[in-house]
Design a protein around this nucleic acid. Structure first.
Length: 191
DNA sequence: CGATAGATCGGCT
DNA sequence: GCCGATCTATCGC
């Protein structure tokens, strides 16, 4: 890794849309395995698709209301894990895909895949590759086992509707590195 | 290719 | 009970 500027709590204490955009190209490692974030989605309490909709607190989403810079990890469809970065006031950014850079061997072993394009392309796959599970829910992103580094230079950002949701489908809150082969899905041409 | 079923947990109508 | 911020295998064209 060339750029080693760590992210701070203040980095996360912004509007989730801004955090989601600036995270594209940032480096995420968990116990030394990970790579460049290439796809994110933002959620907040005004958003019908969000677990924090209308500031409704439950045992599952409690971490979203604690403080910026925490990991919110939840179980999806009963079997996958999904990793979010908690932002300001009940908002969060879902980490959907990354470009594998470090710890390839460990990630391939955990995913039982050799294709680097399928290692971390999707929130569930990403968590499996990085060994993220419920035990990391509420953990600080600024300390071990996490390591987060600011994106070194400019990246070309694409935006579009989020994936796999039934509410607020129109909202443009999915962001990614345009044309990256490591996305979970390509962005629709157009906008 | 695209469509679909199934796995399986927590939160809510 | 039912549905979801998912993924994989397995159909059918």
């Amino acid at each position: 890794m060339i750029q080693r500027a760590r992210l701070s709590e203040r980095y996360f204490a912004r509007h989730a849309d801004d955090v989601a955009v600036s995270l594209i190209g940032a480096v995420l490692l968990v116990n030394g395995a990970g790579g460049r974030i290439v796809e994110t989605e933002s959620y907040d309490p005004e958003d019908p698709a969000s677990h924090s909709y209308l500031y409704r607190r439950t045992a599952r989403n409690a971490v979203m209301f604690e403080r910026p810079g925490l990991a919110y990890v939840y179980r999806s469809y009963g079997l996958h894990w999904c990793l979010n970065f908690v932002c300001h006031g009940g908002s969060a950014v879902l980490i959907r895909a990354l470009e594998p850079v470090e710890g390839l061997r460990a990630m391939k072993r955990r995913r039982e895949t050799r294709d680097p394009h399928k290692l971390c392309a999707g929130p569930g796959r990403l968590c499996q590759a990085l060994a993220v599970d419920g035990s990391l829910n509420g953990a600080s992103l600024l300390a071990k086992p996490f390591a987060l580094f600011r994106r070194p230079g400019a990246v070309e950002i694409a935006a579009g509707p989020r994936i796999g949701i039934s509410k607020a489908r129109e909202a443009v809150r999915r962001f990614g590195e345009k044309d990256s082969p490591f996305l979970s899905r390509r962005f629709p041409p157009n906008a």
